[in-house]
Simulated scan of single mutants.
Amino acid sequence: MKKAVNFEKDLLEAYEKGELVSTSPSKKEKEKFKAAAQATFLKDRRVNIRLSSPDLMDIQARALEEGVPYQTLIASVLHKFVSGRLVEKPSRLTSRSTRTAKKQASG
């Protein structure tokens, strides 16, 4: 917690000294951001999916942490996935078939 307080103090001091400079996006950048926002929030189709109760509860808990409705969180995750911005971390677990093959090869 102290790090955050110190960081905030440093920001305030920099602001008061005039060291922070406000930058505004160009007109072209504003149009680009506007188009991206409109495309992101355009919801013209309904989809029904079935989820396990534990998965839905986890999604709802995560949405609560993020301060967004859970359906919005689901839509955001799907949008990031299809746009290539959702990066999957490699699993530390091995599949059963991989373990079985390793056992057979060593045995």
Rank of each mutant, 00 (worst) to 15 (best):
S83W: 02
R62D: 10
K34T: 04
S53M: 05
T40S: 11
R62E: 14
D55K: 06
S53Y: 02
I59H: 01
R45P: 01
S52K: 04
T72I: 11
F33Q: 07
D58C: 06
V77H: 05
K43A: 12
L93A: 12
K89E: 10
G67C: 10
R62Q: 14
L56H: 03
V47R: 11
E66W: 13
L93I: 02
P90Q: 04
A35I: 05
L42G: 03
K80V: 00
F81T: 05
E65P: 03
K43I: 10
D58N: 10
A39E: 09
K80E: 12
T94E: 12
S52I: 01
F41C: 08
G84P: 01
H79C: 07
I59G: 01
L56F: 04
R46T: 13
Q38C: 09
A75R: 15
Q71F: 11
S95F: 07
P69A: 14
F41W: 13
R92Q: 11
N48S: 15
K43P: 01
T72A: 15
A39S: 09
P90D: 09
S53H: 04
L78H: 08
A39V: 01
V47M: 14
L51M: 10
R85K: 14
A35E: 11
R92T: 04
L56V: 00
F41A: 05
V68G: 05
K89I: 10
S83V: 10
T72H: 13
Y70W: 15
V77M: 15
A39H: 04
V68C: 13
P90C: 05
L51W: 00
V68I: 15
D58I: 02
R92I: 03
V77Y: 11
S95K: 06
R62N: 12
Q60E: 13
K80Q: 13
Q71Y: 09
I59W: 00
F33V: 07
R92V: 03
L73S: 04
